[in-house]
């Protein structure tokens, strides 16, 4: 119970606002509750398979494997792998940071790391399902295609820039890292 209260303290707080609204401004309260309920139902319907997919991916795609595939090779194949792998794993982008950093440390190219980070953040397949559901196929497809192209360009550009103007401060701090 205590855990529940702690976890749900924010929604409960907002619910309290709703209760107050029902007393003082029943009209607005009714309208808000209707919209809330409608969207809750829609989400409740789509989320179970999405989360099960995420769970399955996490179990069957261990992180060390991802590192191996993305590892030292670069070029077109590496870029494609970075893009594809970013779409599969789950978790917020700050989970991708340490993973991508260790890839970089193991010799992956900057291009691949930028592609991987961007694809992880913006092109995840389970997330895409929800996007199609709520914003429609044309919206989701356009964004997906644009983002894919942009990530490749960004990756190549950033690699060129950082090769020409290396981040000396950061490279120096990395020298102390263990292999």
């Amino acid at each position: 119970m205590k855990k529940f209260l702690k976890q749900f303290k924010l929604p409960l707080g907002v619910a309290l606002v709703y209760i107050l609204l029902f007393v003082f401004s029943p009209d607005i309260a009714r309208r808000s509750s209707e919209v809330t309920w409608e969207y809750f139902l829609e989400m409740a319907f789509i989320l179970p398979p999405v989360f099960i997919l995420m769970g399955l991916m996490e179990v069957w795609l261990p992180k060390d494997k991802i590192q191996k595939w993305l590892g030292n090779d670069s070029g077109l194949r590496g870029g494609f792998f970075s893009l594809a792998l970013g779409t599969l794993p789950t978790g917020p982008v700050y989970v991708a940071f340490p993973l991508a950093a260790s890839l970089l440390h193991k010799g992956a190219s900057i291009t691949n790391v930028v592609i991987f980070l961007g694809s992880w953040a913006a092109l995840k397949i389970p997330q895409l399902m929800v996007e199609i559901k709520f914003l429609g196929l044309p919206f989701a497809l356009t964004r997906f295609a644009l983002t894919t192209i942009a990530l490749i360009i960004m990756g190549l550009f950033m690699k060129a820039m950082l090769t020409r103007f290396p981040d000396k401060e950061w490279l120096k701090s990395r020298e102390n890292l263990p292999d």
């Binding site: 976890q7 929604p11 607005i28 809330t36 769970g55 996490e58």
Partner: peptide, 30 residues
């Protein structure tokens, strides 16, 4: 294990999700 992870991810996101939906609905009515 996958199902457990799925449930955990869902449980983690649920409060945040409820807050956003409640707030946005309220905001839209206001």
């Amino acid at each position: 294990k996958a199902l457990k992870k799925a449930w955990k991810a869902f449980e983690n996101i649920l409060p945040q999700f409820l807050v956003v939906i409640l707030m946005v609905s309220l905001l839209l009515s206001l």
